[in-house]
Design a protein around this nucleic acid. Structure first.
Lengths: 332, 332
DNA sequence: GACGGGTTTTGAAACGCTCCAAGGTTGTCG
DNA sequence: CGACAACCTTGGAGCGTTTCAAAACCCGTC
């Protein structure tokens, strides 16, 4: 910066002003400085900059699973919102590794970002507490915080389950099965509650079976599908609720394409996240849509609210409602 | 840090040593300092830190399209490789917006990252030149640089096209059509060359038609598919090469599910990126696989090579070979 | 008890920027 | 012509670390 100042025949203070408060500098001087900056290829040092100001113009977003299009949507929404208020969004993918998640939380903490958006897959109370205790703001996405811990943006996951089950019941299915895995993942637990509620509400004419899958990946789905396909016809559920889309697609593949069990005629299937893959699948999947982009936007809003209001901030939870998207795997 | 020092009854220099060179400090003192750090909730300021050192422990990765699973794979590979050498990987998504891309390049430049990985969708020579002129290293991913500009990791995209076409020809298809869009996107151009080469090699018995799609999204694919479906049977190609998987899936959907044209019996289809969606599609898609993870790893390797070797560095290009994954849309 | 060697600790400079009080320069008006 | 305001520019303090030469300490020897 001193070099630029020398080259333009001004002081460093003036160079700084050109960069940060152009109005304070006469047009002629500003032009001369800018020319020098260009000629010398000067890049202002963000470290020194934020050392002085004590903060940055960046928001960190830690995502548990960048493979999942819901998380991508959240990132998109957050990016748009952040950009609109002059903040940059930095992404970090933990691939569901809690150690990595802690590392990234600390990294963002140490680099004094404006705030952190966290979309985890496990309880992260410890990590949140740690960086909050340093005065850094965190907003939790798609995972309910321990009450009073921080702001959060959630989907009404109970209603996700309810909508899915209700759709099957309303279209005449009576022997439902709910395929679930990772019951420790909170949104998954919530969905189950909604499913049960819908079934109870429907009365004794509708039964619910719960099927445990080992995991949520495609290959796990194939196992579940194959198992179902081996059942006697009268044992086969006529409505399947599947806790994620990937799992649902795999099951449909096994049932429909491999075993020749007709979807939706014999078994209707509903998924729960309306991921990218849902619409493109062998049998386009009826699924409950999660408003990912809006979640990202809301999260940024909550974060900036908290940053702005300082001490007198009250944590808030925004709960967005899901919506059923009907496709052919479970038509109307 | 001063507070910590006071609390532990030592000087700031010692606190710094505890953090950075524990061997230099006596165990007793170190313990006392660590206790104070914990008690006071001290977080070292990364800005001050990198102000002194002039660099950070982070690598920035700028991705043009985080929706595309190839880019996700590259990020994964890069993340693993970066972590293995003690660097953090920070992601930024430009959503194909060149202005955003420039902003992120500048952001990483200003924050003095160790280096930048860039996977663009358009020629980015200007941006690369800009930050390289400041001494910051860039490795280009999946997009060939202007010769001598920087290191890069590429897929042999010509071979992608060749493999796809060759597979169709080898399995007896003779009236090929290549569906393409965004011909200005370099990998897409390369693929076309490979397709043409394979067709020429096959001699006069095989014909090639080129079909221009307006874009690469699902809806564009539906348009192309519907158009094809309207053709007289003898006008219909029997082998379709589609430049991306998303487009391929949409076309198949329109052909197979909507118009009842049998895939692969009447028309075989091959896609070009082997994205996540390829395997899960209505008709599982035969596609040419791009080694995304390995690309990410190689990129980190090249970047660190360049950082290490300094002045005497010579730019290198790593070209990885694609591989055909045969599924049912174009079986053997 | 002084000395020498090694180990610990200290204190201040430096990193590159922003901010701000103070000084300089113009221009205007009485 | 002098006073005053408005506008520009300057120079230095300070941000929180790391680094390193120098100082302090410790222990065993002579």
């Amino acid at each position: 910066m001193q070099d630029v100042a020398d080259a333009a025949g001004v002081s460093v203070g003036t160079v700084s002003n050109v960069l940060n408060h152009p109005a304070k500098v006469s047009p002629a001087t500003a032009e001369r400085v800018r020319e020098a900056i260009g000629r010398l290829g000067f890049v202002r040092n963000d470290a020194a900059r934020s050392l002085v100001s004590g903060s940055t113009k960046s928001i960190g977003m830690v995502l548990a699973d960048i493979e999942n299009s819901l998380f991508i949507d959240m990132a998109h929404g957050a990016q748009d919102a952040a950009r609109a208020i002059g903040q940059n969004l930095l992404l970090a993918n933990t691939a569901c590794d809690m150690r990595l998640q802690d590392d990234y939380l600390d990294l963002f903490d140490e680099s004094r970002v404006t705030g952190v958006l966290l979309a985890p897959m496990e309880d992260s109370t410890a990590g949140i507490a740690r960086i909050r205790s340093h005065g850094r703001q965190v907003v939790l996405l798609n995972y309910a915080p321990r009450p009073g811990t921080c702001c959060s943006v959630l989907v009404n996951n109970e209603h996700v389950g309810y909508l899915a089950a209700r759709h099957l019941i309303d279209t005449g299915r009576t022997r439902l099965a709910y395929v679930v895995a990772h019951d420790d993942y909170q949104p998954v637990r919530d969905r189950r509650r909604g499913v049960r509620a819908a079934v109870e509400e429907a009365g004794p004419g509708v039964t619910l079976e719960e099927i445990d899958s080992v995991g949520l990946t495609t290959s796990h789905g194939h196992v579940v599908g194959a198992e179902l396909a081996r059942r006697a016809p009268e044992e086969l559920p006529d409505g399947l609720l599947v806790v994620t889309d990937e799992l649902a697609n795999a099951i449909i593949h096994e049932l429909h394409t491999v075993a020749g069990i007709r979807v939706p005629d014999q078994v209707a299937v509903v998924g729960c996240e309306n991921n990218r893959a849902a619409g493109a699948a062998a049998v386009p999947l009826t699924a409950v849509d999660m408003p990912g982009r809006m979640m990202g936007q809301e999260a940024i809003r909550l974060l900036m609210d908290e940053v702005a209001s300082g001490k007198q901030h009250r944590h808030a939870t925004v709960v967005l409602e899901p919506e059923l998207i009907v496709r052919s795997s479970a038509p109307n």
